[in-house]
Design a protein around this nucleic acid. Structure first.
Lengths: 337, 337
DNA sequence: ACCGAATAATTACACGTATGTACACTGAAA
DNA sequence: TTTCAGTGTACATACGTGTAATTATTCGGT
C-alpha cells in the first residue's frame, strides 16, 4: 500500500514489457504498426500496473483534454442541476470530464477559463456579459451557447442551442388564451430593466410577442418583477389581485415562482384554475408534488445535453458551428383549464 | 480577431519584456530576487498580452492544478445541487476549479479519476463502493468523505466531515416523540437491504438508535421502503394508514419523499399535524413552498463546503487528515406540532 | 545473392512550465 | 589586490506524453 501515490508512467510499462516507450504509446493510440507479440506484452503490462495515461501530459501535447466547462448562474437551481446531471452522463460516456463555474463578470473569470485549457465551454447563463463570451470565442475556444437570451452581439465560431423556451412560453400563452384567459401577468424575479434593455431574454420576448400577436395590450400591470424573496412576491401577487385590475392567469419564469404565486392566489380566496390559471416552467420536482399539481412547460435536459456534446465534437473537429432547435413539452396538470 | 487561439506563452512575455523566460517565471511566482526595473517590464508585458500561465503545464511540473473533483450520486437532487454551488463559490475564491462525476461502480471510473491528476476528491455518495474509495486513498489522492454512511472499512489518509445527519434525524425523532407521537414510520426510497447490511446509512441508523433509546419497538411496520416512484409511495402510505396499525408520524429521508407522504396523508383524510406529523430532511426549496409548509432538518451546505476546502488544504499540506463535526438545524413549520 | 519495399522498433524532440545549479556583477571588508 | 556575501540573471533539465524522422529488420522477387 503505497503511501504516496507513485502512479506508473509509460516508462514503467515499457520496462515491464521489455519494449521502448514509443511502442507503448503506439499500442495505446493504435495508430502505427506494432507486432502482435509486443502488443500483447504491452497490454499485459498496462493491465498489471493499472497504467492510465496521464491526461495532463497528454493535454499539454495538444491532444485535447476531454474536458468541458459548464457555466451557469446557479446549479442549486433545479433546472441547471438536472441539466448538469444529464451533461455529466452524456459526457462521461464519451470520455469527457465536466467542470463547473458560476458566471461572474470580472476579467479574472475569463482569464481563469482560458488558462485552464478546457476543450469547450457550454454557457447557460443569463448574466455573463456578452463581451466576455466574445472573448472566449476570439481566443479559439469552442463555445456552445444555450440560448436563454439573445446573445445578438456574439459572432464567430459559436454553436447555438435553442432549447425551445421562446416557443414554449408562447405555447403557454396560447394555451391560457384558448382556455379563455384575457388578462395574463408575467412573473419574474428580477426586473426586466435590470439586465436587458429590450427583449433579449427569450422567455420575456416570447411572452410579449405572443401577447401582442393575440391582440392583448401590454402594460405595467402585465408584469410582476423585482421580487427577491417569497414574502415580497406573495405580497405583490395579493396586491395585484386585490387592486381591481383584472387578472385571470399567471405565466411564470419558473416553477418555483409559480408555486409561490399559486400559494398567494389561493390565499386570496381565488379558485385555481377556475378563477385564475397558473403555469410554470421547467417541470421541476416541485411542480409534480405541489397541490394543486402545477401545469408547466418541460424542457428535455437530456436532449439538450446530447445536442451540446454533438455540437462540441463538431466544433472540435473543425466543422462550422452548428445550431440545434429543440422543443418543449406542455405538461398540463391541475392549475390550467 | 485570431481564428485559432494563439495563446501567448511565457516566451512571448519574455521577448516583449526583453528578459529571459526564467525572469518571467520568477516574477510571477515571486520566489526569487528580480530587479524592480525588470519586474515592472514583465508585468507590463503580461498585462499587454493577457498572459496567463498554462495551468496544464504547471500541473505537469507537479505544482498541483488547483482542481477538485466532486463525486455525488445525482446533482439534480437539490441537496447536492446546493452543496455543489457552495463548493464552487468557496473553491473559486481559493483559485480551485470544481469538476463533477456521478458515482459509478466500475473499475474504469476509478482509473479515470486517477488519470485526471486532480488535487483532491470530495465524495458525497452512498453508492460508491468502499473498496474504490480505498483505492483512491491508497494512490495518495487526498480524499474528503462526507459521511452520509459509515465508510467503516476505509483507512488511511482520509478526512471526514460529519454533516450532522445522524444527530439531526435523532433530534427529529425526539421532537416528534416529545410532541406525543408514539408510532413513527421511517420512509426511504430504496430498501435498506438493497445497499447496506446493517445501519451503515447514518440517517437510518440515527432513526433506529433514537427509537430504541426512547423505548419504541421497531418492526416491519416502522418502515416504508422500496418505492421508486410517486404513485407507488402514495399507495404504500395510504395502505399503511388504512391498515389499522397505528401511525402518528412520518420521518422521511428527504423533503421530496416527505411531500409525497404529506399528499398521501392528506388524501387519506388525516389532519396534519394534529393526527399525523410529517418531517423531511434537507430544507429544500420545495419544503418552503408546499402547503402546509414542511417541517424539516436543514444542513448548512456552506459550512460543509468551507469545511471540505479547509480539510483539503490541510491534506495537501501534508497534515494528518482532519475531522469536522457540523450540526443541523431544525426548521419547524406546519407539519409538526 | 542482392535490392528496394514494407514493416517494426527506436531515437530525438516538442508541448509550457518550475527550479537546482551555475554564473556574473556589485560593493565592501580583509 | 583579493575575498566574500549578496543580488540578479541565465542555462539546463525534468514533468509524461505524442509523433516526425530515423534506423533496423524482414521479405518477396529478380
Amino acid at each position: 500500500m503505497p503511501r504516496k501515490g507513485n502512479t506508473p508512467t509509460r516508462k514503467d510499462v515499457a520496462d515491464l514489457a521489455g519494449v521502448s516507450e514509443t511502442i507503448v504509446s503506439y499500442v495505446l493510440n493504435a495508430n502505427r504498426y506494432v507486432s502482435a507479440d509486443k502488443k500483447k506484452r504491452v497490454l499485459a503490462a498496462v493491465e498489471k500496473l493499472h497504467y492510465r495515461p496521464n491526461s495532463i501530459a497528454r493535454a499539454l501535447k495538444g491532444k485535447g483534454n476531454s474536458h468541458i466547462l459548464f457555466i451557469a448562474d446557479n446549479v442549486a437551481n433545479n433546472y441547471f442541476g438536472r441539466l448538469l446531471q444529464e451533461l455529466d452522463d452524456v459526457a462521461y460516456d464519451k470520455g469527457y470530464l465536466v467542470s463547473l463555474m458560476s458566471a461572474k463578470n470580472d476579467r479574472d473569470f475569463i482569464n481563469r477559463i482560458l488558462s485552464r485549457q478546457v476543450d469547450a465551454v457550454i454557457i447557460s447563463s443569463t448574466s455573463l456579459a456578452e463581451s466576455y463570451v466574445q472573448e472566449l470565442v476570439d481566443n479559439g475556444l469552442p463555445v456552445v451557447l444555450l440560448m436563454t437570451r439573445d446573445y445578438a452581439t456574439v459572432h464567430g465560431r459559436v454553436a447555438r442551442i435553442y432549447t425551445g423556451i421562446e416557443s414554449g412560453i408562447m405555447a403557454a400563452v396560447r394555451l391560457l388564451h384558448e382556455s379563455g384567459c384575457r388578462n395574463l401577468v408575467h412573473v419574474d424575479r428580477v426586473s426586466r430593466q435590470e439586465h436587458f434593455s429590450n427583449r433579449q431574454d427569450l422567455r420575456f420576448r416570447g411572452f410579449c410577442n405572443q401577447m401582442e400577436t393575440l391582440g392583448h395590450q401590454l402594460s405595467a400591470d402585465s408584469f410582476i418583477t423585482g421580487c427577491h424573496d417569497y414574502d415580497e412576491l406573495f405580497e405583490a401577487v395579493c396586491c395585484r389581485i386585490k387592486s381591481g385590475v383584472p387578472v385571470d392567469g399567471f405565466v411564470c419564469r419558473n416553477d418555483g415562482l409559480a408555486c409561490m404565486v399559486l400559494n398567494a392566489v389561493l390565499a386570496c380566496g381565488k379558485k385555481v384554475p377556475e378563477d385564475i390559471s397558473v403555469i410554470g416552467f421547467d417541470n421541476s420536482d416541485t411542480s409534480r408534488i405541489v397541490r394543486p399539481a402545477l401545469s408547466t412547460i418541460a424542457t428535455d435536459q437530456k436532449a439538450i445535453a446530447e445536442a451540446a456534446l454533438e455540437l462540441i465534437e463538431a466544433l472540435i473537429n473543425g466543422q462550422t458551428p452548428g445550431e440545434k432547435h429543440l422543443v418543449t413539452r406542455m405538461v398540463i396538470r391541475d392549475t390550467t383549464k
